Amino acid sequence: MGELVNSGLLNVASMVISVIVMVIGLVFWFFVNRASSRTNEQIELLEALLDQQKRQNALLRRLCEANEPEEKDVPKAPVEAAKEDEDDFIRLVAER
């Protein structure tokens, strides 16, 4: 008779443990699923932001190209004058 009581208790205990494990699993699944869906939303928002930034960059490039003055042949004399100015500056630095 004791064996019947013990086996009944084991069945109830195993049933309770199964229910507890199932509840913990469902709670874990809920939080993982929630985090996953929020992550997917954030990824979609970031992709939309990236697309808008690409469009803005293209517009800025077009604006810069439109406002850019046409370069003509620049005489090389200013470049030589700049080198002479650098030499003058070096002469002014005190030596140690």
Results as ranks from 00 to 15, higher is better:
residue 24 I to C: 14
residue 19 V to A: 07
residue 31 F to L: 10
residue 25 G to H: 00
residue 8 G to R: 04
residue 23 V to F: 12
residue 72 K to M: 03
residue 46 L to T: 12
residue 47 E to R: 07
residue 9 L to C: 00
residue 10 L to K: 13
residue 90 I to R: 12
residue 76 K to S: 08
residue 81 A to H: 03
residue 21 V to C: 05
residue 95 E to W: 09
residue 13 A to F: 11
residue 26 L to N: 04
residue 56 Q to C: 05
residue 75 P to S: 13
residue 36 S to W: 09
residue 40 N to W: 05
residue 96 R to G: 04
residue 49 L to V: 11
residue 52 Q to V: 08
residue 80 E to W: 00
residue 78 P to V: 01
residue 77 A to K: 12
residue 5 V to G: 00
residue 1 M to D: 01
residue 57 N to E: 04
residue 34 R to N: 11
residue 93 V to C: 11
residue 22 M to Y: 13
residue 19 V to C: 03
residue 82 A to S: 13
residue 47 E to I: 01
residue 22 M to N: 09
residue 56 Q to Y: 14
residue 88 D to R: 03
residue 92 L to C: 09
residue 27 V to N: 01
residue 69 P to E: 01
residue 88 D to S: 00
residue 78 P to R: 11
residue 26 L to C: 14
residue 68 E to R: 06
residue 6 N to W: 03
residue 10 L to R: 08
residue 94 A to V: 12
residue 17 I to T: 15
residue 43 I to L: 03
residue 49 L to K: 12
residue 48 A to L: 14
residue 82 A to H: 02
residue 13 A to K: 15
residue 65 E to T: 06
residue 72 K to G: 13
residue 46 L to Q: 04
residue 21 V to R: 14
residue 87 D to I: 06
residue 49 L to Q: 15
residue 27 V to D: 05
residue 9 L to A: 10
residue 63 L to T: 13
residue 73 D to L: 14
residue 89 F to D: 13
residue 14 S to H: 08
residue 37 S to K: 13
residue 49 L to F: 08
residue 88 D to E: 12
residue 67 N to E: 12
residue 89 F to E: 10
residue 90 I to H: 02
residue 82 A to C: 07
residue 95 E to V: 10
residue 9 L to Q: 03
residue 8 G to D: 11
residue 45 L to V: 14
residue 91 R to V: 09
residue 47 E to V: 06
residue 77 A to I: 10
residue 93 V to Q: 09
residue 36 S to L: 07
residue 43 I to Q: 04
residue 92 L to T: 13
residue 37 S to I: 12
residue 1 M to V: 02
residue 69 P to G: 02
residue 80 E to K: 00
residue 26 L to P: 01
residue 77 A to F: 13
residue 52 Q to P: 01
residue 90 I to N: 04
residue 18 S to M: 12
residue 71 E to Y: 04
residue 33 N to C: 02
residue 44 E to Y: 08
residue 16 V to R: 14
residue 45 L to S: 09
residue 42 Q to T: 07
residue 30 F to K: 02
residue 72 K to A: 05
residue 2 G to T: 06
residue 29 W to M: 12
residue 67 N to Q: 02
residue 96 R to T: 03
residue 71 E to S: 01
residue 75 P to I: 00
residue 73 D to N: 04
residue 6 N to L: 09
residue 63 L to A: 11
residue 54 K to C: 08
residue 69 P to R: 00
residue 6 N to E: 15
residue 65 E to A: 09
residue 19 V to G: 06
residue 14 S to L: 07
residue 10 L to Y: 06
residue 75 P to E: 03
residue 90 I to L: 14
residue 16 V to G: 00
residue 52 Q to Y: 09
residue 74 V to D: 01
residue 57 N to V: 05
residue 44 E to C: 01
residue 69 P to Q: 04
residue 64 C to Y: 11
residue 26 L to H: 03
residue 53 Q to N: 13
residue 66 A to Y: 02
residue 33 N to T: 11
residue 2 G to Q: 07
residue 4 L to A: 07
residue 83 K to D: 05
residue 37 S to V: 08
residue 75 P to D: 03
residue 1 M to A: 08
residue 90 I to W: 09
residue 49 L to S: 14
residue 7 S to P: 00
residue 65 E to H: 02
residue 85 D to N: 10
